[in-house]
Design a binder for these strands. Sequence first.
DNA 1: GCATGCTTTGCTCATATGAGCACTACTAAT
DNA 2: ATTAGTAGTGCTCATATGAGCAAAGCATGC
Lengths: 313, 313
Amino acid sequence: MAQAPGPGKQVQIAHIATQHYLQNKTRIEIANETGLSRFKVGRLLDEAVSSGIVKIHIASPSGVRLDLSVQLRERFGLEHAVVVDVPSDADEVIQAKLGSTAGDLLRELLTDEDVLGLTSGRTLNAMARSLNELPKCGVVQLAGVAGPIQETGLEIMRRVSAIAGVRPWTIYSPLVVSDAQAAVGIRRQPDTRQTFEQFSKVTVAVGSVGSWKPENSQMVKNRALDPADREKLLERGVVAEFGATLVTDTGSVIHDIDDRCIAISEAQWRAIPTVIAVAGGPTKTRAIRAVLASGILKGLVTDAATAERLLGG
Amino acid sequence: MAQAPGPGKQVQIAHIATQHYLQNKTRIEIANETGLSRFKVGRLLDEAVSSGIVKIHIASPSGVRLDLSVQLRERFGLEHAVVVDVPSDADEVIQAKLGSTAGDLLRELLTDEDVLGLTSGRTLNAMARSLNELPKCGVVQLAGVAGPIQETGLEIMRRVSAIAGVRPWTIYSPLVVSDAQAAVGIRRQPDTRQTFEQFSKVTVAVGSVGSWKPENSQMVKNRALDPADREKLLERGVVAEFGATLVTDTGSVIHDIDDRCIAISEAQWRAIPTVIAVAGGPTKTRAIRAVLASGILKGLVTDAATAERLLGG
DNA sequence: GCATGCTTTGCTCATATGAGCACTACTAAT
DNA sequence: ATTAGTAGTGCTCATATGAGCAAAGCATGC
């Protein structure tokens, strides 16, 4: 009888379990109604669980994989880990879902007093598009825009700041320029300089992760980064970029081209209380693992398959 | 936020709910570990349930439909109601499943001191075949055997008593005979009389239900019951038989042919502390409802579809 | 500016609950 | 029979928990 109570007892257990778990009656109430002692009721309830009659499921009604989220949080010491179930593994679908989830997370985290920092990227673009409500927090662009489609980077800023109802601090510049001199010149521009001065005030930052191995990031494709540069950085072990911060598998940061980047620095990243990465998909797994290893992140929004790969390896 | 907490909160709730429900930590332990107050933990756990993150399922691992069992028990005031899920609605499959379930129930209910009473019927035959263990309780046949295949009725007694390891009290006679005189003669036989004397000692009885509308019972097909008798009884409203006790839709008992039946009487049925019917299938629904209405039963073992029909109408 | 509700928080105190124990009722072996 | 062994039961007492409350934040109105 250890494994399976008889059918009569099963029904009795079910009755008690229903009263207790579904109708929130106390063991004592049930005991009075059934004529059993409260101890007996308690033991039957224990048996209800141990015999498998009562099953407790913990799952989000809205596609958040809570089990993986919790595991991810504990494994990588994150404060905010959100793993969503994405039925498809098409990049666009993943990005849309991650974006909207990150948007929900932001709406939850941000208050009027916060200052939000953003980088660019397709996932963040999806996030910006899904947002429809935000507190009146400051909005700061943390990096120049990489790749040919600079509009999207600015579109993120425009949309997010419009929803927050504030003027954004923007950076009208590429992420990487050809030489340090040019970078100095750009950083001297009043607009840019003012935005850079906001970095220290940022309380919540959201960034996407770019992958260098495989090469699937806007930065690698940047014209200012010629094949020789790229080759050298790959040899140095760079596998990921977060903003313009380049990271190796072990999580150490490569500063070789810092002087040519128009973006928040590693130290400034680390000074922000809450830094959240939004990224997913098979090609980005290695890069995400690297950025996690760097210790910059306090949060991660990713898809279930990626979370499993991160936890599995 | 009433309906859906943000993803960050969902993860927090999931973490707490996991700790509490799956790892049996107290709210106070969780509060200490997370730095929240125990009140906060309690409120988050409430939210876990109300927001649908925690779902509690009550279902039997062994095919017993506990929800229906409990409903049936309360609706018809039964002590033992067991509803089993039967995938097929073929009579044979239903009977086999009901039989084995009734057997489990018997093994659970019976002790050495009990005296088990049995009628015949295909479902009880299935029960007898599925039994493989019983206490050494007395075994009493409660009714003569109807229909052409008298062997099965005796086979039930043979098998059950063999498993219990005792000598059974049997009735070597048809259920209905052609006239009262013949019945008196049969009842006078020492064997039969001794068995009848056991009826008052029976503590647990199991019987099957025969349907008269539609006509699907061994008794209706009995040779001793000629078409005229049958017609008269149907006109009197008989829709079911339990042993040789004939019942109408309203649950009242028709005694017209009592003097021609070799079986336990209505009054004797009612004197047995625990009377359980085992029956199911679409054709028997009306009959089962009638026998339930008679108030003779303390228990019922049936299939899910029948239970739903009983509860629905 | 200051009232005004409304939510959130942690408190007190009565109540519910669990751990461990002693007691009974069987079982099974000597 | 006697004896130990093994559930099963209900107890005591320390602990966990819930209901209801008061204080603190917080938005919103005038």
